[in-house]
């Protein structure tokens, strides 16, 4: 059940067998660990540098990739301005697309 692309090929079955092997190795390593975890004790609390966390603290979705979004901010701001939500802009960009496609067909 593999599919070829001319040079490479992709076979999910082979991949699944390999993935199972890797998982088995991981599981074997995990079994070597010490079992000191106890349910219902302080160990269940999230650990953050030993600080006491306020009730309901957690990592929200907006916190993920904060640095990434911050680094790309100039680009993302520009893209956000591009998606202005103004219908006249939508139509203008449609005309741009139309002119580009007509030009490409005429010239190429």
């Amino acid at each position: 059940m593999r599919i070829g692309s001319g040079e490479g090929f992709w076979s999910p079955i082979v991949w699944a067998i390999l993935a199972l092997g890797v998982l088995a190795i991981g599981f074997a390593i995990w079994l070597q660990g010490r079992r000191t975890y106890k349910r219902g004790t302080e160990q269940e609390e999230p650990f953050l540098s030993g600080e006491r966390l306020p009730e309901g603290a957690g990592v929200g979705a907006t916190h993920l990739y904060w640095g990434f979004a911050e680094a790309l901010k100039p680009l993302l701001m520009r893209l956000g301005a591009f998606h202005s939500g103004f219908l006249g802009d939508y139509v203008g960009w449609l005309l741009v697309l139309l002119v580009i496609s007509i030009l490409v067909v005429m010239l190429g």
């Binding site: 939500g85 449609l94 697309l97 139309l98 007509i102 030009l103 490409v104 067909v105």
Partner: peptide, 26 residues
């Protein structure tokens, strides 16, 4: 060629190609 260009423009918009994709997320 003109007809093909017009068809391409309309269909690319409907297929959600940038820069005429903005209706799609809405």
């Amino acid at each position: 060629k003109l007809a093909l260009g017009l068809l391409l423009g309309g269909l690319l918009m409907k297929a959600g190609a940038v820069p005429a994709h903005m209706w799609a997320p809405d």
